[in-house]
Simulated assay, not measured.
Amino acid sequence: MKRQVNEAVRRVADALETWDGIDTITLMEGEEDVYDPYFFLSVDAYYRGPLLDADRRRELFPFAGAFESSLANRKDRFLMGDLPVRVEYKDIARFEDIIRGDSVTNGAFRDSGTYMFFRLQHCSVIRSRSDWIEQIRNDITQLRDEFWDGLRASVQSRMEHFVSDLGAAVIQNDDLFYLVSAAGFIRSLTSLLFAINRRFEPSARLLAEQTLKLPVLPESFRGRFDSFLRRDSEITREKKFEIAELLARSVLNL
């Protein structure tokens, strides 16, 4: 299986290199076992200039089966035999703009937090035409206080908003709004903790585990965190809201 994976990575990299705009190709390893149902080959293609349209990208991979493309997410999914592959296209200029700026209030981290930097930090470099990735990796280890302070303020505001929404959903007994608010709250809470610890956020599959390993956590955090996540009919929504308030208050005091 390892040989099959290595061969698939090589073929994907060879195909991507035919596009002159590609600067660096990386592989994210270690998040899932090959035999895990969640497994897929996760490739990032960092490019300069315009993004090729979906039809032209499809032509890069004549060996791909079940090819699907998402223009909104700049992502292609396909199969190589029984191996699922995901290729995500990332504009180098966007990373450079974020690194150069002092503010993070532009929504750059609204959907996936700082996972983009986590991937840069932990990926394996498959191909590279320049030293860009070495430079950007060095840059993200030296982010200024303004970056982390701005990130914390932005995420904190979202967390407080979701706490308020969660309380309203409980009062109104609104099932859907409760689920949306609970998800938004716990996601923004963990993002805030990673910002406070000046760490980049991992993928959602590793988030619970890595959150509990952060060096700076509030007192009694683990118990409250587990209680909020627990699916237990004895813990009412009113109680979950109380736990959310306690979690939020304890993190704000850090």
Rank of each mutant, 00 (worst) to 15 (best):
Q4H: 14
Q4S: 12
N6R: 11
A8S: 14
R10P: 12
D14Y: 04
E17W: 09
T18L: 13
W19V: 02
D20F: 05
G21C: 06
I22V: 15
T24H: 13
T24N: 08
G30V: 09
E31P: 00
E32S: 13
V34I: 15
P37K: 07
F39K: 04
S42H: 13
D44P: 08
Y47K: 02
G49Q: 05
L60W: 01
F63N: 02
G65I: 03
K75N: 09
D76N: 15
L79T: 05
D82E: 12
P84K: 01
R86M: 12
Y89E: 02
K90T: 05
R94N: 02
F95K: 01
E96N: 00
I99P: 06
G101D: 14
D102S: 11
D102F: 05
T105I: 02
G107T: 01
R110Q: 14
S112N: 12
M116V: 12
R119Q: 13
L120S: 08
L120W: 04
V125C: 05
I126K: 08
R127S: 14
S128T: 14
S130M: 05
W132Y: 10
W132C: 07
Q135G: 13
I140H: 00
T141S: 09
L143P: 05
R144T: 04
F147T: 07
F147M: 09
G150A: 06
G150D: 00
R152S: 09
A153G: 09
A153Y: 05
R158C: 02
M159H: 02
S164R: 10
A168K: 11
A169W: 10
I171P: 02
D174I: 01
F177T: 14
S181P: 00
A182K: 12
F185S: 02
I186V: 10
R187E: 15
L189M: 06
S191F: 01
S191G: 07
L193H: 02
L193S: 03
F194G: 04
I196G: 01
R198C: 07
E201R: 12
E201N: 07
P202Q: 09
R205Q: 14
L214S: 00
P218T: 07
F225E: 00
D226M: 03
R230E: 15
R231M: 15
R231K: 13
D232P: 04
E234D: 14
E238N: 10
K240A: 05
F241V: 04
F241I: 01
I243E: 03
E245H: 10
